[in-house]
Design a protein around this nucleic acid. Structure first.
Ligand code: MN
Ligand code: MN
Ligand code: MN
Ligand code: MN
Lengths: 223, 223
DNA sequence: ATATAAAGTTAGAATATTCTAACAAAATTA
DNA sequence: TAATTTTGTTAGAATATTCTAACTTTATAT
């Protein structure tokens, strides 16, 4: 079994890899708030343990084994977040820090029970996919809201960053997952987007905010 | 804040103190499965931190501060056990190991929510009292089943030891908390007790089992 | 192509937690 | 009381995780 610490490194590598397929020491250092030499040592250790591929001066990649173990921690994290929101009544902006701790609990039964009580959810409260027991997860191809065109009607499906502040901001604007959003216009000089949703008209969202919002295009899908 | 490790020591001291009011190094060593010299070092550390009173060759006692902090961990442990049983459907024999881990979660909101969802319970699934937010707990005076006399009719209120094995044994005998038990006879040579409860007649319980069962005498209480 | 900056590494040290071996004190037994 | 057992302590070492300081390699900018 991995220690609490090793699990946090694996998870960070997994998350950084999500976009680029690899993670470098410098980014891990920032992400984990741990100095580079410390990260460097841990990379050697994880490499020795067969969890990552590591060669000096190169970015690290998870091995099959590392991938699987990281996915299981992410799975526990996201199941926990979902449980906290759906079964305990927390807001989506309140669950990350708690899940950050509970993800390390060693008890397959505990997470199996959560999964069951939740009805085997596929996504967490932030729209991120929950890996299944085998570490597989379905990535639906979403678009960033700041890449949509005026006239597009889209559905809010996920956030790419889930800091408390950002989520609380979305709360104040009534912007929840599954909200149908119509893109009205985009300012050419700063990318500010004007949208409509629910009963709100002429709502302004900065480009930075829209960069963190993932949407699917509203289309009638043949079932 | 205390580390995970320090919390486990505090809890062990608290539990051992429950009976004698103090704990010695040797017992702590056995309880925690940590060698005596290690426990000895930790006693110095906890003493330096003002959590216990410690003098060489003497048993340790919790200070006010240590008492309070230990009680808060016990509170989190017992609330968790209650939540797992009442809200997630686990058996009373399945929750200790999970609670042992979740008790270390740092999130007042998380435990406050559990408490609220449970309706502010006073006891855990094993009949042990749950300390309140101030660390106070109500100890009802129960009797051991092996100290009852033939003819007594009592109510099963708590277990003093909650190992999986023991609780599973009680499950197989349909012995749950609140069961009304009638003491029929006690063998003088080995203390084996014959009892009746539910629809079971002439049920035999060893003295060792009865030593771990706490009961209250069934009496009409004026309300 | 240099020079500068950024990223990565090595060396050495600190803290936390644990252990074994050896010794000392206290309690129990004879 | 003296011998023995149990309990407790000290010393010294190992592992895990982290840091700072100094150095090296790679990437970027002039
Ligand atoms: Mn999260
Ligand atoms: Mn974590
Ligand atoms: Mn317990
Ligand atoms: Mn614990």
């Amino acid at each position: 079994m991995n220690t609490h610490t090793e699990e946090n490194y694996l998870k960070a590598i997994f998350n950084l890899s999500a976009t680029k397929g690899e993670a470098n020491v410098n980014e891990l250092s920032r992400q984990l708030d741990i100095k580079m030499p410390t990260v460097n040592s841990m990379m050697k250790k994880l490499s020795d343990r067969g969890l990552i591929i590591y060669e000096s001066y190169k970015p690290v990649r998870l091995t099959k084994k590392g991938q699987k173990e990281a996915a299981m921690i992410i799975r526990k994290h996201r199941l926990t977040e979902m449980y906290l929101v759906e079964k305990m009544g927390f807001g989506w902006d309140e669950v990350h820090d708690i899940a950050e701790q509970i993800e390390h609990v060693q008890s397959p039964e505990f997470f199996a029970k959560m999964d069951e009580l939740l009805g085997y959810p596929k996504v967490d409260p932030h729209g991120s996919p929950i890996p299944d027991r085998n570490g597989k997860m379905e990535w639906t191809e979403y678009h960033k809201l700041n890449e949509c065109k005026p006239g597009d009607t889209v559905i809010f499906k996920a956030v790419t960053h889930s800091s408390d502040d950002f989520l609380k901001f979305l709360n104040t604007r009534e912007l929840l997952l599954e909200t149908v959003i119509k893109v009205i216009s985009i300012e050419s000089f700063d990318g500010t987007i004007t949208v409509e949703y629910n009963k709100r008209k002429q709502e302004l969202l900065s480009n930075i905010v829209c960069d963190k919002i993932l949407v699917s295009h509203k289309k009638t899908r043949s079932v």
